[in-house]
Design a protein around this nucleic acid. Structure first.
Lengths: 333, 333
DNA sequence: TTGAAAGCGGTACCAC
DNA sequence: GTGGTACCGCTTTCAA
């Protein structure tokens, strides 16, 4: 910067002014400075700026699993929203491990991110705190300000779709068991089923981590321990796709024998055969809300935002073989 | 830091010595300082350290597409290797766009990363340069030092697998056309086929970007323009999985009518039905080599490293219906 | 073994 | 409108 100042015949202060538009400057001086900058290929040092101003124009994003396509998608959208506002995103993967998450939190904060966005690892307890504004994304934890889809609604959508088709024997791959407190999605599902007079048997609910392998194991387990269901609701698409594979292996036809519904609408959901009926989350919207909320000067933060979900019907759901679908029986079409 | 020094009754220099182990210090002093650090919850400012030392303990990683599971996997492995050495990784997605890649390069460098790892965007021309050591990963470009799988070998493995099964009518989804210069994988495939006396017809080669959609389109196109092939080689798994879906839609049975081979072994390759036969890349090994190479003090860098690939046989390949497999015909088993 | 002080590369206050 | 300069938080000579 000193070089630029010298070359342009001005002071470093002036250079700073023209670069940041901090103060009015004579057109002639501006021209000289800009010329010098170009000629010398000058780039401001980010470290110095951060040190001096205390702002780094960076947002930290911690996600639990790069391997679940839902999160890369979300990360892409966050990155795009952030870039549009001049921010860079530092991405970290917690592998759904609370301790690793803690380390990332510390590292990112120390690296001077201006704000933290985190999809809490499954085992996270208490409220997430940091020296900078922190917003939880997609998963709720303690009192942390939260942006997420309306998962209850999503679960309800999925359940309603099945009851409308006439299913009454339903099983669910519920995802992680949070000390007996079912997630919102599962609550949306079960409460909606209950409203239709469908009660979920205890053995028809399988808890596990979110993974393809767990989905596969869960499907086998349900088939073995509580057979007779005509539909299977999964708490996310990786579980559903794992289950689909297991069902295929077991000679159970989807959707002829069992209808299957997922959650998230990851890109691979459209590619399975049959295509997976699922509840789509609007990651773009989530990302936008999160970034806006996070970067808002006024962000008293405590605002929870909720974004709508939509049902995407593909080939993995159909009326059960055994019972006439409700629509034929005179229910509301 | 000044606070810590005061509290411990020493100078900031001493605090620095203790924290970094830069110089010998009386046990008693060390104790006092450590105590003060803990009590005050002191965390060094990364920006200040970077500014002062010129090293940020960060590696920048640019990948072309977070949406292709191969890259998140690679990113995870790079992150792990980097963390093990005390480095943080700043991850950016170029969307396979050379201009966006240039911006990321600039941003990351300005943010003071110590080294840059980049999987070049498809349109990249010339040699990638930066003010810090830069290593290309997975895709070669110009004279940039490169770490990648032995793609020729991988392509050869795939082709050989098909010829061993007895296929002679083969089509390929070749990925992006690099000005007429086929990628190493495709060269490995075609040269190996040629060695077995199988010539690839011009119309049996389809060029496109790497994506599920392109794979689907390519399969349809090949079916239409150059039917009669009994096997299809794809340059990566997203293409292959797209093709599989298209083949299914068109009533072409895999592997009965057409055998299909992919490349990468992304996690979803095992889940399709049938499971995808593919060439696995060892991302772990690639990541390790890249980080070691990048962080080596001596890194005269110009070393190209190559890591082996392996063939993973699943259900998507079988002997062609029409011809007896070569093994039966007395070829080398 | 410890401390004083000079910068790293910017920003912004205060004079001119 | 422009320049001089203190200072952000840390590392690292150099002296004591």
């Amino acid at each position: 910067m000193a070089d630029v100042a010298r070359q342009a015949g001005v002071s470093t202060a002036t250079v700073s002014f023209v670069l940041n538009g901090t103060k009015a400057v004579t057109p002639e001086v501006r021209r000289r400075v800009e010329h010098a900058v170009k000629q010398l290929g000058y780039r401001p040092s980010h470290a110095a700026q951060t040190l001096r101003t205390g702002r780094s124009l960076a947002v930290g994003l911690i996600i639990p699993d790069l391997t679940n396509p839902f999160f890369p998608k979300l990360a892409q959208d966050v990155e795009q929203e952030a870039r549009a506002r001049g921010y860079t995103v530092l991405l970290a993967d917690s592998h759904d491990d609370a301790e690793l998450q803690r380390q990332h939190l510390e590292t990112l904060e120390q690296r001077g991110v201006d704000v933290l966005l985190v999809v809490p690892a499954v085992g996270t307890t208490g409220t997430l705190r940091a020296g900078v504004p922190l917003i939880a994304l997609d998963r709720s934890v303690g009192q942390t300000p939260l942006i997420q889809s309306d998962k209850w609604q999503g679960g309800a959508l999925a359940a309603r779709h099945l009851t409308d088709l006439g299913h009454r024997e339903i099983a669910v791959l519920a995802g992680p068991d949070r000390n007996g407190v079912a997630g919102e999605r599962v609550r949306g599902m079960t409460e909606t089923l209950a409203a239709s007079g469908v009660v979920l048997k205890e053995q028809r609910m399988y808890h596990s981590e979110y993974s393809v392998e767990a989905g596969r194991a869960g499907a086998h387990r349900l088939l073995e321990m509580a057979p007779g269901f005509t539909a299977l609701l999964a708490a996310n698409d990786t579980l559903a796709l794992g289950a689909l594979s297991a069902l295929n292996d077991s000679g159970v036809s989807v959707p002829d024998d069992v209808s299957l519904v997922g959650f998230d609408d990851i890109s691979w959901a459209a590619l399975s055969s049959p295509g997976l009926t699922t509840v789509r989350q609007d990651t773009r919207q989530m990302a936008r809300q999160a970034i806006e909320q996070a970067l808002a000067p006024e962000a008293a933060a405590a605002r929870l935002a909720v974004v709508d979900t939509t049902l995407v019907v593909r080939g993995s759901t159909a009326a059960p073989r055994t019972a006439a679908p409700r629509v034929l029986a005179g229910g509301r079409a």
